[in-house]
Design a binder for these strands. Structure first.
Lengths: 164, 164
DNA sequence: TCAATACCGTTGCAAGTGCAACGAAGCGGA
DNA sequence: TCCGCTTCGTTGCACTTGCAACGGTATTGA
């Protein structure tokens, strides 16, 4: 493989980036056009739906967003009345963030179509494909896990039921 | 699946985005720290290595970069002496962009480690995994291809040897 | 020939990003 | 108790992005 006949379209990092971006953009039409949410805000809300009252740090560590992004996303969401910020009683440094009633109502509206779109993608794959994909993504992550120069994986992104 | 037990970490678009970004960031250490290239500049140069003298429009259509990004990337690369811009003789609107001697030399230096890193990723996959991945990525792309609300796929990203 | 139209690359601008640095708050050892 | 060290969330800042609009050039059709 010389420099001259290297094909960008065959390069795995590029291929993943292109597909991922294409999917993300399509998906963002659901939560952006419908609810005015950015991807960061979307991730924060979705995370909050499950992990009810958490700190900025927690979201940062779980949703693959850096601290400033979480902080700003939470601020915007608070301004929009979708999220509530409370100081922790036990540790004054901590912030306790949770969905407001309106926030949950909004999520109840936009999460189903997002899940439906994922289902549409998954429907194109056979059960064997889906199983293979899980394994492949995990194997690629492991390469990065073993690479000190790569960014560490978020805690929640590590499958719990898989051998270390 | 209710709103309350939806897990972000299981959501395919999120999973692809996380893995893709992790890989892209790791890879960018190679061309960024080593040569000061952004991802856009990297893609432009790599595309030029194969498609020697092309227009901005061409790169835009092939490397998944919007026109302004290509335009600015090319300008920076030209300033850095890595790329040459010439007006087309037949159509004065067109720009003919090609790697300079220095540009090619730089690419000859940074492409091999990038390819080596891809190889490192691929080495974690069995031949069957790799074949499955090709099929899976293509199937997912097809869903988007059939979706008018999704962004169309770049020409070069469509495999040539696959049935329509 | 000459408008009307389409296309090319660039630029403006508002918004988003990533990184580092900051002040505030807890923690720990002397 | 008090001083250094860590952690929390925020902010500043320089830079990148994405979109739309622009001027310049070709093309089309009457």
């Amino acid at each position: 493989m010389t420099t001259r006949d290297f094909r960008l379209a065959d390069f795995l990092p590029y291929r993943l980036a292109v597909l991922s971006e294409r999917i993300s953009r399509r998906l963002s039409r659901i939560y952006e056009a419908e609810a005015g949410l950015s991807m960061a805000e979307w991730r924060v809300m979705v995370h909050l739906a499950r992990c009810h009252a958490v700190s900025v740090r927690e979201i940062h560590g779980c949703a693959n967003l850096d601290k400033p992004r979480v902080s700003r996303a939470v601020s915007r969401l608070e301004t929009a009345g979708l999220v509530e910020k409370t100081g922790s009683a036990t540790d004054q440094r901590l912030l306790v963030i949770s969905l407001s009633k309106r926030g949950r109502a909004l999520l109840d509206r936009i999460l189903p179509p997002a899940i439906a779109y994922e289902a549409r993608l998954l429907a194109a794959l056979s059960p064997a494909d889906r199983a293979a994909l899980d394994i492949i993504l995990e194997k690629l992550h492991r390469v990065l896990d073993a690479d000190a120069q790569a960014r560490p994986r978020s805690r929640l992104d590590i499958p719990r039921d898989t051998a270390e």
